[in-house]
């Protein structure tokens, strides 16, 4: 934190999306988010980080001799291995939905921009843990792809991939999952960031093979407040951003029936995700990003 030179309260402030929206550089956004997040994290007794010491254990045959704590051996002639929290030597694949529906929302940020913040923060966080980070931006097609890598400098490529995503056209989940299966065979974490306006069964058709492949999948569902609790005083003609379909709805419907439907949809998605061993995290564009990062770490911790 000394590198950023910010206080804890300032760092917390930087986690708010309306503040982040003023930052043009996604790298800076990710750095601000993660550093701010970590400041809060150090006060928590539950969580650690990869650079933080966790425990010593006896050296067993087959362990990497590089991790032997030679200072302990000098004092006690015992060979122990120093373990750090969160160190899994895994990789993280970010699947970012850049369909037209993700352009909805705001101010201050659209769902896509919030997803970009989240994806960048996750990438930065993973990179800090020495995890290999990859990225795939998709809508109806796979628009951009960066294979997972932990090499230094790779993070900038991933951030650029995330930053260049633009909301357009519709959504197809089979394409990114197929591409992912073709490119990735190694076990790791898969974080899909989308609003998930789709047929859940079709989504599961894509997620299920990943689970079978041993991937740990987390679905970050990004929604705007206007999608969860819309407020209209009169009849309005709502136009689907992806299909162009226009539906005239009454304020009574949007006030009563629609929230029930969207919440039922969210619950269905959550249940379905659990059914295939995936995690589902609902993120609102008004929330601070630390909650999402916290969920990610919890998820990552459970997988270890």
């Amino acid at each position: 934190m000394a590198a950023l030179g910010v206080s804890q309260s300032t760092a917390r402030e930087l986690l708010r999306p309306e503040v982040l929206s003023r930052l043009k550089n996604l790298d800076l956004v990710a750095r601000s988010v993660v550093e701010g997040f970590l400041i809060g994290l150090h006060r928590s007794p539950k969580f650690g980080f990869s650079q933080e010491f966790a425990e010593y254990r006896s050296y067993n045959e087959g362990d990497d001799p590089r991790f032997i704590d030679w200072n302990v051996y000098a004092r006690s002639e015992k060979m122990v291995i120093k373990r750090f929290l969160g160190e899994t030597n895994s990789h993280l694949m970010l699947l970012l939905d850049a369909s037209a529906s993700m352009g909805f929302g705001g101010p201050p940020v659209t769902k896509l921009r919030y997803a970009q913040f989240l994806a960048a923060s996750l990438a930065f966080l993973a990179s800090k843990q020495h995890d290999a980070v990859g990225c795939m931006v998709f809508d109806e097609e796979v628009r951009d792809y960066r294979a997972p890598s932990s090499r230094s400098g790779k993070l900038q490529s991933v951030l650029h991939c995330i930053d260049s995503a633009e909301a357009r056209t519709g959504t197809r989940f089979d394409k990114p999952f197929d591409k992912f299966r073709e490119q990735i065979s190694r076990r790791g974490l898969v974080a899909m960031i989308s609003d998930f306006y789709c047929d859940i069964d079709k989504l599961l058709d894509g997620v299920r093979p990943l689970a079978w492949q041993g991937q740990d999948v987390v679905l970050f569902q990004i929604l705007d407040e206007q999608e969860l609790d819309p407020e209209f005083q009169s009849n309005v003609l709502l136009e689907d951003l992806e299909t162009g379909e226009a539906v005239e709805v009454a304020p009574e419907f949007m006030r009563d029936a629609y929230p029930q439907r969207i919440r039922a949809h969210i619950e269905s998605l959550s249940r379905a995700a659990k059914g295939v061993g995936a995690d589902h995290v609902l993120v609102k564009t008004g929330d601070s990003l630390d909650q999402a990062l916290r969920n990610y770490l919890l998820f990552r911790q459970r997988r270890q």
């Binding site: 909805f104 609003d195 009169s234 003609l237 136009e239 689907d240 299909t243 226009a246």
Partner: peptide, 12 residues
Amino acid sequence: SDRKPFSSAMLL
């Protein structure tokens, strides 16, 4: 009539 963009009409 007022036309407003909305993320998805699938639940409308």
